[in-house]
Design a protein around this nucleic acid. Sequence first.
DNA 1: CGAGAATAGGACATCAATGTCTCAAAATTC
DNA 2: GAATTTTGAGACATTGATGTCCTATTCTCG
Lengths: 205, 205
Amino acid sequence: MSQNSTRMFYYEPRGYDAAMTETGIRQRTRKAILDGALSVWARDFTATLHDIADAAEVSRSTLHRYFPDRQSLVDAAKDAAIAALEESGVRAVSSGSDAADQLDAMLRATVDVGNAVIFLFFDPNRFADIWEGDDAEDAHSELREIVTRAQADGAVAADVAPDWVINMFYAVVYTAAESVNDGALPRHRAGEVASRTFFGGLGAR
Amino acid sequence: MSQNSTRMFYYEPRGYDAAMTETGIRQRTRKAILDGALSVWARDFTATLHDIADAAEVSRSTLHRYFPDRQSLVDAAKDAAIAALEESGVRAVSSGSDAADQLDAMLRATVDVGNAVIFLFFDPNRFADIWEGDDAEDAHSELREIVTRAQADGAVAADVAPDWVINMFYAVVYTAAESVNDGALPRHRAGEVASRTFFGGLGAR
DNA sequence: CGAGAATAGGACATCAATGTCTCAAAATTC
DNA sequence: GAATTTTGAGACATTGATGTCCTATTCTCG
């Protein structure tokens, strides 16, 4: 036929298990896009795929090669956020048995994935389908258990409700994440600053 | 010229002071559109002008006749929300001098304008330009003063921080407003239910 | 270096939301 | 009930986001 004699492979997006069998480069690109989506959408969920491609320092073509349509990127970002959050929780809890240490580790770990937290929880309607039933309770039960124990140990003020501590926990995470996004706070100092603020305000004197 | 002999007036939108010099009908239509915008945008700020026209039971033409573009409706809705909120606060404070009565009245009044609260405050980035400086503090200072006085009177639990009470105040308002929007709670019972829940949880035993 | 892998960039079609305009019908008022 | 006001409905142009496709260029790794 009239085909050119040179090779004409234009590399197509992979199938569902793409993330499993990808080369190192593609894994890094995929991660960059997901990170960009998380940080941009955490601040404004109406942001454009163009905005996300920019944030990920990738062309829009490349973005579409990895995530054919908007929804698939939303789903992947959601999964990535949940995975990051769970991983950070596990890491923190296994940092020792002392409640105060665990709480501190959990705060720093959560600040590290602050964008994931904001992306997932900021707008209750965004992923309302996921949090129905007891899932919302379960998500916080581990943190609540640690907080209660820390209060019993005298490491955290016991004259406020655990819920108040938990609300403060997330308030600090939110503020830290926004400051990092704004560039007002260097990422490597975020955990330390958040911890200092949290315990300086709530730690037993 | 070639003009038809019959009258050809197609009534145009009015100028900036339209709301001042309007007839009763137009005032009611304008209010219906603003109410629709508030209730729809409180739940989802990305909602379409079509959605708002539907909610207001008005055609899209009519909506555009009153608010030429999206931004002008957003601005008008914002102004209406602020006015409603301030008016409800004034009404509640002047309901007596007893702190508990004032707090109860303020809660019921705020539930009445729940959509305005959600529309204005739900997404801190939405109207970030308004709340810069001390305005955010001032907006809550009156409520905080009443709460503190109610705690001193023994009408509200004093072993929690005033901020926690204020957070609960808005949490109850949010929940009530959403329930009314969902149809799960009749509007005329919202104030009563909110008040009962709020004081049943926080009132001194 | 050279083949294969990956990306950038842009042309293009599509779609949904926005905004404009016109006319007919309904509602209101006198 | 006639004049005036107001609305509903739809046709239309515009715009921005999305999604597809093709090609040249760059990168990576043996």
